[in-house]
Amino acid sequence: MFGLSYTLTIVLLGTVFLGAISGSFGTFIVLRRQALVGDALAHATLPGIVVAFIITQTRSLEWLLMGAAVSALLAMLILNVLKHATNIKFDAGMALILAGFFGMGQMLLSYVQKTGAASQAGLSRFILGQAATMLRHDVVIISIVSTLVLLVMLAFWKELKLFTFDPVFFRTLGLSERFMERLLTLLTVTIVVIGIRTVGVILISALIIAPAVIARQLSNRFGLNIALAGFTGGMVAAVGTLLSATRNNLPTGPVIALLLGVLVLMAIAFAPRRGLLWQALRTRQHQRAIIVAKPLIHLYENRQSRDEDHLAYRQYLAKGDVKVEDGVFLITPQGQARVRALMGEKFS
């Protein structure tokens, strides 16, 4: 295909599918402020992978991913108990689950090493991922699962939208909050699990978070956000994969994560309307204008001028913002309009 080698085509297909689905679904995660839950769940997959290996003694991806999913769900279960039944600060609990599970994974990994199973080398690749060794079989799994996630997303579109925006209102409509929470957890775990093979447990967060942040900077509309995030995720994954193929041993996951990071910074700084640069310029202009227009604002608020300010009104007289009647300075409708424009639209 397009002069690419068969192996590269396979890898490319896999990463693009993954980038697109984690990007678009990531929008829900980021909007629900669960970005780091994804990170915690990714780290929590490690013990499951190792246990699955110990039990089955195979490196077949299905079994390892199954193990990963089980241990991520276990971590989620503990997190839920933490959240609903104790006063423990949730972020702290999450950090401990993340690192504790990861530590458990390492402990089990050292057990596997001790037993001398030669094939254990394949296990630690889940930590940083290894897209370059993807097989056709892996890509089939990724694409089937991605399509399933996409279908579920489309099927529950309006419920997901409302639940993400306003979970309390969602419940008052008689819809099951618990079901939605479980569905979202399940989908998050699914995405994390298919992602770790390619980009690893540490960097899958980048694929989930970054496209959503970029898309949010570019669009205010929900549907467009999700489409844009999916597109960005897929595109960056493709570019990253091709870039990493240009040099031997260049790991794909970090290249993709790096590109995403650069794009996020650029989007936050330069995006057309929400970009910080434009925002800062506009704010500065506006605040300067308020400071400069202080005498006019005073006149607007206080009806008449204080005597000592007479000099300050000269320029406004010339512009027609201020008039003189019986020796008293008064603000004209044009001047009022100018002040109201400075007040900002949310003011009244």
Binding site: Q279, R282, T283, H286, Q287, I290, K294, I297, H298, E301, L342, M343, G344, E345, K346, F347
Partner: peptide, 16 residues
Amino acid sequence: EDLTVAYQQNAVLWDI
């Protein structure tokens, strides 16, 4: 005197 506070382009306190 003359206190104005604004967050970005929105005045929160206006000429107090």
